[in-house]
């Protein structure tokens, strides 16, 4: 994204979305605006935004800010992360471990490999520990007992070993390559 489109967008948004505390006293919660790197705007309740440690410390340092730019985060994973955090807030209000486990399991099961992999750096950057735990475990589960080639393509990793080096590594623990799942 170029800087020429970025600056004006930011200005318009700020005017549009500046909080009006006086007129909004009836509303129970304050809204916080998050802006993704692809300039999408997300308005979330303060309690949800405070689940993001990075955003929380941003607000502690500069309380007058109205829009939090998230230059490392694109819209799709951000929306999924927000969806997850909204649910976690509900579980905080009404603790139900079984329901929470069920929700967390379903949350990752329905996501594609790419969605999971894309969300991890976001959860990492925003420091959402619970989500990071859930995602890391989900990814570990998906690559468990898979072949080296499968793991490489899952993460988009290029093999930087020479054929000889790789063959030597494979010989070292030949038994570990037996009984691997089909890709």
């Amino acid at each position: 994204m170029s800087s020429s489109t970025d600056s004006p967008t930011l200005t318009t948004e700020t005017t549009q979305l500046s909080p009006q505390p006086d007129t909004e006293t009836a509303k129970p919660t304050k809204k916080i605006t998050l802006k993704s790197s692809d300039n999408q705007i997300f308005e979330v309740e303060e309690s949800v935004a405070m689940e993001f440690a990075t955003v929380k410390s941003f607000f502690e340092d500069s309380p007058s800010t109205d829009t939090v730019p998230l230059p490392n985060v694109t819209a799709k994973p951000l929306s999924q992360v927000i969806e997850f955090c909204k649910e976690q807030i509900k579980f905080k209000a009404n603790p139900d471990e079984a329901q929470k486990k069920k929700y967390n399991a379903e949350f990752v099961t329905e996501k594609s490999d790419k969605d999971l992999v894309d969300m991890i750096p976001v959860a990492n950057y925003l420091e959402i520990k619970d989500l990071l735990d859930v995602l890391n475990q989900a990814v570990a589960d998906r690559i468990e007992n898979k072949s080296v080639e499968y793991v490489r393509s899952f993460f988009g990793i290029d093999n930087d070993f020479t054929a000889e080096e790789e063959a030597a590594l494979r010989r070292e623990h030949a038994w570990a390559y037996e009984g691997v799942d089909e890709d």
Binding site: N145, V151, N159, L169, A176
Partner: peptide
């Protein structure tokens, strides 16, 4: 799994 993952990349 980790023994296999050693040869994913350097």
């Amino acid at each position: 799994n980790l023994l296999r993952c050693k040869c994913v990349c350097k």
